[in-house]
Design a protein around this nucleic acid. Structure first.
Length: 739
DNA sequence: AACCTGCATGCTTCA
DNA sequence: GAAGCATGCAGGTTA
């Protein structure tokens, strides 16, 4: 029995289960896709898995069966990335390592590399999984200003003070805005808009033209030409598109600058409930014009926030009765009429506009909307906007993404007392079906924004109300967060990927106070923490978890230092030097990154940097206290290279030493050199390219190609330090010397 | 067994 | 209290 789970190659879709494919999809292995039911992407045979195991560039072996997995197609790329997450096999291993498990149950692991938590692990959405190499090179160890803001949303069960001693619950979602995987502005604004009353950034608003012939329904929608000109403002855009804005100041909506723009339709307009009136900013309308290529007038008709059932797999969008009867064709029969619309990508969609008898009334629905909704990446909580385009009388559909907060509000609480920040499409239906807490007694009115409730799908139903007020939001840069995130108590699984050791944790990291780790003369790790009350530094055992607020009185491990009145230990002076070095190293690194605009140092560069710091530190202080600039979270048992290397970073090993440290360092240098070689080649190629273009100024400097960080090159003496294994050498120089 | 269709139920909002 | 509407669910259909 071999059953293949299909994966939609549309990375924005990623539909996986057979149920998400239209009928005709073969259930047996070896079948080919035709159409993804979720997103509507059409496939031909060539684009799918015939390429699955071909030896194309980019392939790699399955860690379990040694057969090639990654051939370059999206499907295998996905497998490849999952492999990096650990524990997943290729299709060859389907029996022992079910692909289904791979796809539907993405391991929620938390990875560290070189003591730093990888951002990708915090975003376990299928769409957001980022290849390891990209994570390392583009996110992790680049200059600090390249770190994107991310937020940790804690829940009511997590207290920023004391409860943080405990690991975050598994349901806690770390929202990290990856420039690779998320849209550029929306999430950041969402994350940043703690106050829900802030104007919401519009992630996307898609409108497109609809050919007149697309209107299948013969019954015409009433024309907009009858609307009152006096209430219109026509914006002439550069492209010549006229966007007719109907200023209606009396109907401005609440807190934001979103203006309720009634369609101006004569029939039944005044019967529309306010929540269905289109609320669009001028900016949005101006944005729309960029998508329109003809001289047209766009008139928003109505909008509706998608409910769970609207966005669900049933594919039925319930239309507000008044809107349907006002703007859509009149229908007499229950089966209704087909209706064509287009989205922003120019894709045509045909919906069945129909109704059901309901309590002596009618319930209007659009059937078959799932592909369109998926294609527009809409979820429950997002707003679908129906508009008309004049003079062609075309029906267009657009969308407005909900904020993270809105999305959160749209979700029922899966765990009592815990709010889940989740943007995962796939989780949505399941969560929607979770009624155990939907009628929970703990449901409280939102304190974040009263109005918000009327804008979320939870506004109508108890079932969907959740505790958005419980969400706490802590903002850090990714780099800052590293210093607050500490490994959970569970032991990590160390996996080697591309000669890099990754620690995989099943549990999320622990969030706590920033501390400084040092190594004392006995080579034991110590932890320093600053009192929030007296600002004195206190020494604690390295395995103690520090809550976000800590004072001397909390120092239960050493009664001698449990009072703010007690002066600091003498060792603090050394700590001060260490901190100074740490800051300087960071500054140098950032400055160099800005200056040279080179490829950012990788974790291996950071390793070398650490080694340098260790040496310098020892120069300034004879004690063996050392600190890692990139490894603030080391704990006993940590097996990363920084922890296992000699404190001074060099000098204690013979050239032919085969100890774990030396072999690891050798191996890593090889990898680093190889990588740098590639980078250098790329840069040179680029330089040659540029040189062929007329250049007004050239510096003549050539040594910036592929060189390591300043910290490395500043220690050029190390290059000539004989055959001893030298952790501080510049790999490029080393390579040059060798050649 | 999974999916689809049509209707019923019951919660929310409005007048 | 009435109307609207979100969603559950039973029965039919399909793979």
């Amino acid at each position: 029995m071999s059953m293949t789970v299909k994966i939609c190659m549309n990375e924005l879709c990623g539909a996986t289960t057979s149920s998400q494919w239209k009928r005709g999809w073969p259930m047996k292995a070896g079948g080919v896709a035709t159409l993804c039911f979720a997103c509507g992407t059409e496939y031909d045979h060539v684009r799918y898995c015939e390429r699955f195991h071909l030896n194309e560039p980019g392939w790699r072996e399955c860690k379990y069966c040694d057969k090639p997995v990654h051939c370059g197609c999206v499907v295998s790329k996905y497998l490849y990335e999952c492999l990096d997450s650990g524990g997943i096999a290729c299709i060859n291993c389907i029996r022992s390592h079910p692909l289904k498990q791979l796809v539907n149950d993405i391991p929620n692991s938390f990875s560290r590399f070189g003591g730093n938590w990888l951002p990708s692990v915090f975003s376990n959405r299928m769409n957001n999984i980022t290849p390891l190499t990209e994570v390392l090179e583009k996110h992790q160890f680049t200059s600090s200003n390249s770190f994107k803001e991310f937020s940790i949303r804690c829940t009511s069960g997590i207290d920023t003070d004391s409860s943080l001693k405990s690991p975050l619950p598994s349901s806690t979602m770390f929202v990290y805005q990856s420039p690779l995987s998320m849209e550029p502005t929306n999430n950041k604004q969402n994350i940043g808009s703690n106050s829900a009353s802030e104007p919401q950034a519009q992630q996307s608003l898609g409108f497109s033209l609809l050919p007149k012939s697309n209107m299948v329904a013969e019954e015409k929608i009433p024309s907009f030409k009858t609307e009152q000109k006096s209430r219109e403002t026509v914006l002439k855009a550069k492209s010549g598109v006229s966007i007719r804005l109907k200023s209606n100041k009396g109907m401005a909506s609440g807190s934001d600058n979103r203006v309720v723009r009634p369609s101006g339709e004569g029939r039944g307009r005044c019967h529309l409930l306010p929540r269905y009136l289109p609320k669009m900013t001028d900016q949005e309308l101006l944005q729309i014009h960029g998508d329109l290529n003809s001289n047209c007038t766009l008139t928003p008709l109505f909008e509706k926030i998608l409910s769970a059932s609207d966005a669900g797999r049933i594919g039925r969008l319930v239309l507000p009765k008044a809107c349907a009867e006002t703007y859509f064709p009149h229908i007499d029969k229950s089966e209704g009429v087909p209706l064509r619309v287009q989205d922003i990508k120019g894709k045509e969609w045909t919906f069945q506009f129909r109704f059901w008898p309901n309590n002596n009334s009618r319930m209007y629905v659009l059937e078959g909307v799932t592909p369109c909704i998926q294609n527009m990446q809409m979820q429950a909580g997002d707003t679908v906007i129906f508009s008309r385009l004049d003079p062609e009388d075309k029906l267009v559909i657009g969308c407005r993404k909900a904020t993270v907060l809105e999305e959160a509000s749209a979700l029922p609480n899966p765990v009592s007392g815990t709010s889940l920040i989740c943007t995962d499409n796939e989780n949505l239906p399941a969560l929607m079906g979770h009624e155990g807490t939907s009628n929970g007694d703990s449901v409280q009115p939102s304190m974040i924004q009263e109005e918000k409730k009327t804008h979320t799908i939870g506004s109508k139903s108890k079932r969907l109300r959740m505790h958005s007020e419980d969400a706490l939001e802590l903002k850090f840069t990714w780099e800052e967060a590293q210093e607050h995130l500490r490994p959970p108590f569970s032991k990590p699984t160390v996996v080697m990927i591309e000669n890099c050791e990754l620690e995989e944790y099943d549990e999320p990291p622990v969030f706590g106070k920033k501390t400084v780790f040092t190594t004392n003369t006995a080579k034991l790790q110590e932890q320093w923490v600053q009192c929030d009350s007296c600002s004195k530094w206190r020494k604690l055992p390295s395995d103690v978890l520090i809550p976000s607020k800590w004072t001397c009185s909390d120092n239960v491990s050493d009664p001698n230092w449990c009072s703010c009145s007690v002066p600091e230990e003498k060792e603090v002076k050394r700590l001060g030097k260490i901190l100074k070095f740490s800051k300087e190293a960071k500054k140098r690194k950032v400055a160099e990154n800005c200056e040279t605009k080179q490829v950012a140092p990788t974790g291996l560069d950071a390793l070398a940097t650490v080694a340098v710091l260790g040496e310098n530190g020892s120069e300034h202080d004879e004690s063996l206290v050392s600190i890692t600039t990139k490894h603030p979270r080391h704990r006993p048992g940590c097996r990363c290279i920084v922890c296992i290397q000699p404190p001074s970073g060099k000098g204690n090993h013979k050239p032919n030493c085969i100890c774990n440290v030396c072999s690891t360092v050798r191996r890593r240098f090889q990898t680093l050199m190889l990588r740098k070689k590639t980078q250098r080649a790329e840069l040179e190629a680029e330089k040659i390219k540029k040189s062929q273009v007329p250049v007004t100024h050239t510096t003549g400097s050539s040594n910036e190609l592929g060189t390591g960080p300043t910290v490395l090159s500043a220690n050029s003496d190390d290059v000539n330090k004989g055959q001893d294994l030298d952790l501080n050498c510049d790999p490029d120089r080393r390579k040059d010397d060798a050649s």
